[in-house]
């Protein structure tokens, strides 16, 4: 018989958690030191910032510049639209195949590996590879975002499909329906609303990324933004950023409304 403890602690300290947290803090201190940032650098930086904002304002509203910027933005929009449409039409079958409850392992395994590879690289890196493969321009950027779309939408779509209720699928199968009918009548109606939600999210995300693929030659406004910032034309940079933000916010608003109407 053990003696009952007189002063039992209500919340005993969690040693493991404390150890992990201390290790984390030690690492963060090391990381800050490894950054090698001197106070002088920060002070200069803040001085620079004043100069920087001074050159940024007012934003450049020269009509010829605006026309150029609008051209770039138009390209970015086109990249976003095309990559979303193509990417989604690929993600639907790939996502279905990667779901563990739909396809056999010999088909699902390779599909999941493909999706994982698509997810591993930032769209900008994929864009570099496509620029090498198909040359500078909109096509390279759009292909890179198709890869990003498959990596994100197919993965989440597969997870959604794995959560469906098996009852409807079994009911359809019990009538002797073909595999295609089981998919169309038993599976898809359960998951399409959430697929639509993912699609709207991905369109926004593709628009954000289509504004930067230009940095590596993938078309769109990014090239202009990068050049303007390297030439210290900060008033143009500000105009471009404001236009990007306005476009993204407008599109986000529109997709939210469309989702409400469609669902």
């Amino acid at each position: 018989m053990s003696r009952p403890a007189l002063h039992r602690q209500a919340f005993p300290p969690n040693r493991g958690k404390q150890a992990i947290l201390s290790a984390l803090i030690v690492y963060l201190v090391y990381a800050v030191l490894a950054l090698d940032v001197s106070m002088a650098r920060i002070v200069t930086g803040i001085g620079n910032a004043a100069h920087f904002f001074d050159r940024m304002f007012p934003p450049n509203t020269d009509p010829s510049k605006l026309a150029l910027i609008w051209d770039g933005m138009k390209q970015s929009l086109q990249i976003a639209i095309l990559s979303t449409v193509v990417g989604l039409s690929l993600s639907l079958p790939i996502g279905l195949i990667s779901a563990r409850n739909i396809a056999p392992a010999w088909l699902g395994g390779p599909a999941r590996v493909l999706v994982m590879i698509c997810r591993s690289f930032h769209p900008l890196i994929v864009a570099i590879l496509f620029v090498k493969a198909v040359g500078f321009g909109v096509l390279a950027g759009a292909l890179a975002l198709v890869v990003a779309t498959v990596g994100f939408v197919a993965k989440l779509f597969a997870e959604i499909v794995e959560e469906i209720s098996p009852k409807q699928v079994e009911a359809v199968r019990a009538t002797g329906a073909s595999t295609l009918s089981v998919l169309l009548i038993g599976v898809l109606p359960q998951v399409l609303p959430r697929f639509a939600g993912l699609s709207a999210y991905q369109l926004d995300s593709n628009l954000r990324n289509s504004t930067i693929v230009g940095i590596v030659g993938g078309g769109g406004i990014g090239a202009m933004l990068f050049t303007a910032s390297q030439r210290f034309d900060y008033d143009v940079v500000l105009t471009i950023i404001l236009i990007i933000i306005a476009t993204i916010m407008t599109l986000e608003f529109v997709t939210a409304r469309i989702r409400k109407i469609l669902l």
Binding site: I42, G45, F52, T211, I212, S229, I241, I244, I245
Partner: peptide, 17 residues
Amino acid sequence: RSVNSLIWALLFVAIFG
């Protein structure tokens, strides 16, 4: 959220080098 991290990076490179 509206500004991509690459664009944030362009701005901060301009300020802090």
